[in-house]
Design a protein around this nucleic acid. Structure first.
Length: 545
RNA sequence: GGCGGAGUAGCUCAGUGGUAGAGCAGGGGACUCAUAAGCCCUUGGUCGGUGGUUCGAAUCCGCCCUCCGCUACCA
């Protein structure tokens, strides 16, 4: 029985169009972290999903002649299938339109109200009749005045609404204290410092409801404080709808049973890790904790803020149109190839410039040439020189590979614990390099020739060397499994060793034990070698051909 | 404007006082088990500029230039 639990989340993706690779990047990273916890024996819960309410989505659906619900259903299908193609295995895919989420949002608001943190006020700003209220930063201002970038011909109105506000201003000191007492709760460090700076500038209350945005969760409280639920169970439209913050952020508690299943919620909350993009840092590390404090709930243990994928220095995004289609990348690199290229090529703690070419280069260099070829040459030599006998490795104190493994494994695990996934893979691949150098240093083909000529010592050494290499391949395959979950079982099968984990990484023994040098099963035969990661032709090579 | 960060080989970056590094890309070589992969060697940088501290600075301090992040109602 696992003795520790681990709950992690991604941000929920805005379901306003098909998913881009940049959106899924975060989910792939979270999935790799999830699998590493499952395989180390933690009882793990991984939540991801979609954010489906907004004026924007209702407008888009309307333009397409669909109901908002039908539209988001289609978008969600695209997200789920793209995630499936990438081997993402969440324990729950949450949608903000899920019925239990509505109950959770209502409960969070009731608690905030009961705590005196909600009050009625007026919100005013530019209002686009097609999209609703617009932030000043989202508007274009020129000689003709202010207008909406999406609807330049539509005249904006300066509207005032009566809205509910959340008393964020009351939480400044509590937040500062929490940051002081939990110095690494937001990481990387520089992201925490940005938020601290923001808090110290002073916090303003924010509005949490909208009067004129029907595609949203009904606001549960009437202006007089009474419930907005009508006798027939429906909600009074006069109460308006819940605005984005409570609607979206609350998903993290909904996902683990709030408020329907107190026992389950007690088990999983607080989350161990929220993984988010830098653009929503403030929501997660200032507004969300204040909302939780107001509700009397503990705060997540850590928020990790990753950067963006850049294309020639510009943020990859749907609106810029410079995003990669995840399905197209998977078609080219495969599911695991895409996962690896993403997580190795993109630094998890900052922005990184990427390109199709950078992914292909990374795939070819690390997966096809270094790791895939290592496995292939090891198996091929075992088949040719030893008739496919799966010879055992030498004891750790009799092979130079064992100390190399110890060092690489330590580096890998340290970086993984620090959420530096790219560095974790780099550390592991140090050992791939060491194993390849080991082959050339030992020259098994020379040993094999000598053995054929009757050299007993050469025959013995050949068995030891290939045994070490088979072990090296096994160790790399298992250690890399959270990153390349579809390939890891294939590596095991080719090596002729059992793969004791379920497809989502659960069930099996603690990975720790399997990562000890010499812990593989003895005896048996290898499977059939076949390339794990076929080499891709680069665009330059294709042009020459 | 305020606060913070960064400018090091073609590219991505490591390197916080003591003779400039890694990976990838480029060039050469020896081998042959392998996915024409791997291995070995190698080209390449006045470490943004400038002044200073020091026996000695990419590394510390001042000034300047350039770029970037944060600076609230977008999901």
């Amino acid at each position: 029985m696992p003795d520790s639990r681990y709950y992690l989340t991604t941000a929920i993706a805005y379901a306003n169009s098909r998913p881009g690779l940049h959106t899924l990047y975060e989910v792939v990273g979270a999935d790799a972290i999830t699998r590493s916890h499952r395989m180390r024996g933690d009882d793990t819960f991984f939540l991801t999903g979609t954010d489906e309410y907004s004026v924007n989505i209702a407008t888009t659906a309307n333009r397409l002649g669909k109901t908002p619900r039908a539209f988001v259903d289609e978008m969600v299908e695209l997200f789920r299938s793209a995630e499936g193609a990438l081997g993402i295995a969440p324990d729950r895919f949450i949608r903000t339109t899920d019925p239990d989420h509505i109950r959770a949002v209502h409960e969070m608001l009731r608690r905030a109200y009961a705590n005196g943190d909600l009050y009625q006020g007026t919100y005013e700003g530019w209002y686009c009749p097609n999209e609703g209220f617009k932030a000043p930063s989202d508007l274009i201002e020129d000689a003709a005045g202010v207008h909406c970038p999406n609807h330049p011909g539509v005249e904006l109105q300066w509207l005032t609404e009566r809205n509910w506000f959340f008393r964020l201003s009351a939480y400044q000191e509590r937040l500062e204290r929490y940051y002081a007492e939990h110095p690494d709760w937001v990481q990387p460090e520089y992201r925490k410092n940005e938020m601290l700076g923001f808090i110290r500038q002073g916090l303003e209350d924010f509005s949490v409801s909208r009067e004129k945005a029907p595609w949203g969760i009904p606001f549960p409280i009437m202006p007089d404080g009474s419930s907005s639920q009508l006798p027939d169970g429906s909600w009074n439209p006069e109460a308006g709808t819940v605005y984005v913050w409570f609607d979206a952020l609350t998903n993290y508690v909904t996902g683990v049973g709030f408020p329907d299943d107190p026992a389950r919620f007690e088990r999983w909350w607080p989350a161990d890790l929220h993984i988010i993009g830098k653009d929503i840092n403030r929501l997660h590390t200032i507004m969300w904790p204040a909302m939780l404090m107001s509700a009397g709930l503990p705060l997540p243990r850590k928020v990790w803020v990753h950067g963006w994928l850049l294309v020639q220095g510009e943020r990859m995004s749907k609106s810029r149109g410079n995003f990669l289609d995840p399905q197209a990348v998977v078609a080219a690199l495969g599911s695991d190839g895409t996962r690896y290229a993403l997580l190795r090529e993109v630094a998890f703690d900052r922005d990184t410039d990427v390109s199709w070419d950078s992914f292909v280069r990374r795939y070819n260099a690390d997966l096809a040439n270094d790791f895939g070829n290592l496995v292939n040459r090891t198996l091929s030599m075992t088949a040719r020189y030893l008739g496919g006998e799966r010879v055992p490795c030498r004891p750790a104190d009799e092979t130079p590979l064992a100390p190399e493994w110890r060092a690489a494994r330590a580096g890998h695990e340290a970086k993984l614990d620090a959420f530096l996934l790219h560095d974790a893979l780099a550390a592991l691949w140090e050992f791939v390099g060491a194993a390849n150098r080991f082959v050339d240093a030992e020259q098994p083909w020379v040993l094999a020739k000598a053995a054929r000529d009757g050299d007993e010592r050469a025959a013995e050494r050949l068995r030891g060397v290939l045994g070490d290499l088979l072990e090296a391949c096994r160790l790399i395959g298992f250690a890399a499994a959270p990153f390349i979950p579809n390939t890891a079982p294939r590596v095991a099968a080719q090596l002729g060793v059992p793969y004791p984990y379920a497809p989502d990484g659960s069930v099996g023994p603690r990975l720790d034990g399997l990562l000890e040098w010499g812990s593989g099963p003895r005896g048996g035969r290898i499977g059939t070698p076949e390339p794990l990661f076929p080499r891709l032709e680069t665009e330059a090579e294709l042009a020459q051909a």
